[in-house]
Amino acid sequence: MTTETPKPSSVEIDAVKVTLADSLVGVALEWSEFRDQYRVVFPATELLKCLNAFKSAGFEQLSDLTAVDLLEYSNATDRFEIVYCLLNVDTGLRMIAKTYLNEPDLTIPSATSVWSGADWLEREVYDMYGILFSGHPNFKRLLLPQEFQSFPMRKDYPVKGRGERHNFPVITRAES
C-alpha cells in the first residue's frame, strides 16, 4: 500500500538547474529561494519552450496556475505576474515558475498542450484578469456570466463591483 518517497532537497533542485541550463540555452532564467521554495522567473517570449523544458525536467503536474495584478504593488515594474506552481509527482519536488506580462498585449500561449490540467485554470485567469491564452481549445469565461464586462480581480475593480449585482428584474407577489 505504501511506498517511500524521498524528501525534496537542494540536491534535486541543483540537478534540475543543470538540466534546464542544458535544454534552455540562451534563455535567461532567474532563480531565487524563499522558505525552502524554489522559484524561477523566465521570459514570456519563450513561454512554451520553457514550460516544455520544465515538464521534461520531471515536473509532470501543474499544481496551480494563477496571476497577480501588480498595479498597486510597491516597486513593481510590470503589470501582471503569471505563476505556474509545478510538482514532480515522483520525488515531491516543487518549483514555482513565474513570468511577467504588460499591457497592451496580454496574450501568451496556452499551456494546455503541455499539461491538460491547465485548461480550466487558464480560463479562470482570463475570467479574473483578462489575460488571453492563444491556442486554448475552449476559450471563454469560466466562472462569471458570459455577458460580464469587467475582470474583477484586477486591482482597479472595486470589491463591491460596479452595480452588476443589482441589475435584475424584481418579481413581486402579485406577479408570481
Binding site: 462569471l144 474583477p152 472595486p158 470589491v159 463591491k160 449585482r165 424584481v170 408570481s176
Partner: peptide, 13 residues
C-alpha cells in the same frame, strides 16, 4: 462582493 446578490428579497418575495 461584486458577485453576491445582497439579499434575495430585493428581487423576489
Amino acid at each position: 462582493t461584486y458577485a453576491v446578490v445582497q439579499g434575495i428579497d430585493r428581487f423576489m418575495p
